[in-house]
């Protein structure tokens, strides 16, 4: 399993638009079980409603875990996505 943390720096936080993009990136790894969230709550990164309901704001530390096929590549791609967009 790969795991990493990312602190949101974007002013608006994990809004609908970046949430949608995040889900799309995660959905690209069909064989990999990907979760995103905080200590309080982890959700399936491929489910938009759950990701949006995290209500992650600027300063929120997100934990991402990837488990399964391509977990390395998935973690790498997600980390790159977060850095660039959030």
């Amino acid at each position: 399993m790969k795991q990493f943390q990312y602190v949101i720096t974007d002013e608006l936080g994990l809004h609908a638009r970046p949430a949608g993009q995040l889900v799309k990136v995660a959905a690209g790894f069909a064989g990999c079980y990907i979760k995103v969230g905080t200590e309080a709550k982890m959700v399936d990164a491929k489910r938009i409603m759950g990701v949006m309901q995290l209500g992650a704001k600027k300063g929120t530390a997100l934990t991402i875990t990837c488990e399964g096929a391509d977990e390395e590549a998935a973690a790498e791609k997600l980390e790159a996505f977060l850095k660039e967009n959030l």
């Binding site: 609908a16 638009r17 949430a19 949608g20 799309k24 399936d44 491929k46 489910r47 938009i48 409603m49």
Partner: peptide, 16 residues
């Protein structure tokens, strides 16, 4: 348009 795109994604949301 992205708002509409997010709505389309909701159609595929497994929880939903």
């Amino acid at each position: 348009g992205m708002i509409i795109d997010v709505q389309m994604m909701m159609l595929d949301d497994l929880d939903y």
